[in-house]
Simulated scan of single mutants.
Amino acid sequence: MTDWQTRLRESGHRLTPQRELVLAAVESLGHATPDEVYAEVRTHSDAINLSTVYRTLELLDELGLIRHAHLTDRAPTYHSAAGHEHSHLVCRGCGTTISVGRAAMEGALGALAAEHGFEPDYGHLSVFGRCADCAAAAT
């Protein structure tokens, strides 16, 4: 049994094909909205609807198997919790998203967080601004 299956069972939830499909879709897509996850899942099965995808994403997020971030003003974007924890720099001009490792974000925010006795959730953090190309085009 894999780690995600163990975590699901230990939390009192059943292993279902739909949950496996949603997790696999998030892992294969990288960063994806619920609609993108739904479209990917539908390429493998017609036996799942959008509300099931939303509920499954919420459950997998609660269990720490996936993470969500707000990379737009629309639906959250989900990505696998496996691998490195990261934050996001999001360009408001072109929409480019840059993943930044936790160590770099801790270096940038560590003193400010310590000053205020605050523990940031780096895996949920998104910073909006302009990428170098969009900033150069604006001048």
Rank of each mutant, 00 (worst) to 15 (best):
R92K: 14
L21E: 11
G110P: 06
A111V: 04
L125K: 04
G95Y: 11
L71T: 07
R102K: 13
D46Y: 12
G129K: 07
T77W: 13
T6H: 09
M105C: 08
E20C: 09
H86K: 13
Q18K: 06
S87M: 01
D46G: 13
L109W: 11
A132G: 06
R9V: 01
H68E: 15
R74Y: 12
H31I: 11
S11K: 10
Q18N: 12
A39E: 15
H88N: 04
F118K: 08
E58L: 09
V100M: 15
L63T: 04
R55F: 09
T2V: 10
E85G: 07
E119H: 06
A81E: 05
P120L: 05
P17Y: 01
S45A: 14
R42P: 05
R14G: 10
H68Q: 13
A47Q: 13
E36H: 02
F128W: 10
T97L: 13
M105S: 09
D35Y: 03
C131N: 03
S99K: 15
T96G: 07
H44Q: 06
R74L: 12
C91D: 09
I66D: 07
G30V: 09
S51I: 00
S11L: 01
V37L: 06
V37I: 14
E62P: 02
A136D: 14
L29M: 12
H31P: 08
I66A: 07
H44K: 09
E115Y: 04
L60E: 05
E85I: 14
V90G: 05
G95I: 10
S99R: 15
P76E: 12
I66Q: 01
S28Q: 06
C91W: 03
H79R: 15
L125I: 07
L8C: 02
R130D: 02
L89M: 08
C131I: 02
T16H: 07
S51P: 05
E40Q: 14
T2S: 07
I98V: 08
V127M: 12
E119D: 05
R102S: 13
H124K: 02
A111K: 10
A104Q: 09
H70Y: 13
L109S: 06
V22Q: 07
S45D: 03
V90A: 04
W4C: 06
V41M: 11
A103F: 01
T139F: 11
Y54D: 15
A137V: 05
R92I: 00
G95Q: 14
D121V: 00
T43K: 09
E20P: 06
A24C: 09
S45P: 03
E58S: 05
E106Q: 14
L109F: 11
E10S: 12
A136H: 00
H13S: 03
A69E: 12
A47V: 12
D121W: 04
M1E: 03
S45E: 01
R42E: 12
H124G: 07
L57Y: 03
P17S: 08
E62G: 07
L112G: 04
A32Y: 00
S28F: 01
A135S: 02
G30C: 09
C91Q: 08
F118I: 00
R9K: 12
V127Q: 13
E27M: 10
L23P: 05
D61C: 08
I48E: 00
S126N: 01
H13L: 00
A135P: 00
L63A: 03
R42Q: 15
R42T: 15
L8I: 11
P34E: 15
L109P: 02
A138I: 00
C94T: 00
A114K: 14
W4Q: 03
L63I: 03
T56P: 00
A25F: 14
